[in-house]
Design a protein around this nucleic acid. Structure first.
Lengths: 145, 145
DNA sequence: CAGATTTTGTTACCCTGTAACAATAAGAGT
DNA sequence: ACTCTTATTGTTACAGGGTAACAAAATCTG
């Protein structure tokens, strides 16, 4: 399997996402990778696809942007409930519309409840996005209202 | 307030969304409104904004597309738990990746649990997106696996 | 090393969404 | 009715997000 350069891109993307205090768009990432010779969006998207598949990066659907996963270990739902025993990603995001910070959190009971709803409908989940927009504690303290 | 034409557009959009079996993108809608004289995307987006604010249309973030709300009445969360008593939209979507159909459903307990998580963090929610991709019951029956 | 396969790069393009500004239509006051 | 003000609607042009199609290069197999 050939994948030397792709790994380098992936590593650079992880660095960029790790340093940024907020989600980065694919084009933000492209700008940051440009010094390393990357010029095409597709290069970024391909690297992102692999990182997402590996669970190291999450896509924030409501922002068209990406964040580094805070902890690659336990972010899965299902506990074997799924029809194929698959363990899909089960994280939720609290997104502050003022400062842009994203708080990634896990709640097994939340996703257990969601899985109940879905199985009632005979719906087999593959991937889920739970994203809440609002105001984080720090921003609320700074400028209430 | 001047709003005769805008209302016509909104009505046409509701008709188009009501007839479509799947979510429609803003440009899908533009194509359907073209016979009525609409030529610019912005016209569609402005009408959609009003419909969304009125709770008659939902945006599916993970699809960049829109669906008619199945029932404009009771789709709110909070029950007064929110800091300002606001009742944000509280619906979840099960999106079939095979047939494209979107099943909108409500679960107060799900959102109560979500609100708990958020208040633990001091996060004040304003809008939420809960979208699950997978396979609906009908499609699973047609072609299992 | 030759050939098949996969990864990487390049080009060009489509889709989504909005900024900035012009034109038009509705209401208020005289 | 007329004018002034204000809000709505339309037009143009563009920024941002994402991918198809194909060329080039690297890797693995025999």
């Amino acid at each position: 399997m050939a994948s030397r350069k792709g790994d380098a891109h992936a590593s650079n993307i992880m660095d960029a996402l790790g340093q940024a205090p907020r989600p980065l768009s694919a084009y933000d990432l492209l700008d940051r990778l440009r010094p390393t010779g990357v010029t095409a969006p597709l290069t970024v998207y391909r690297a992102l696809d692999k990182l997402i598949a590996a669970g190291k990066v999450h896509r924030i659907e409501s922002l068209n942007a990406f964040v580094a996963c805070c902890d690659g270990a336990h972010h899965h739902a299902g506990d074997g409930h799924g029809p194929d025993g698959s363990r899909r990603s089960a994280v939720a995001f609290a997104i502050c519309d003022r400062c842009g910070q994203v708080d990634e959190f896990l709640d097994q009971r939340l996703f257990a409840r969601l899985d109940e709803d879905l199985s009632t409908r005979g719906f087999a989940p593959r991937a889920s996005a739970v994203e809440v927009h609002g105001t984080c504690a720090a921003c609320a303290a700074t400028a209430p209202g």
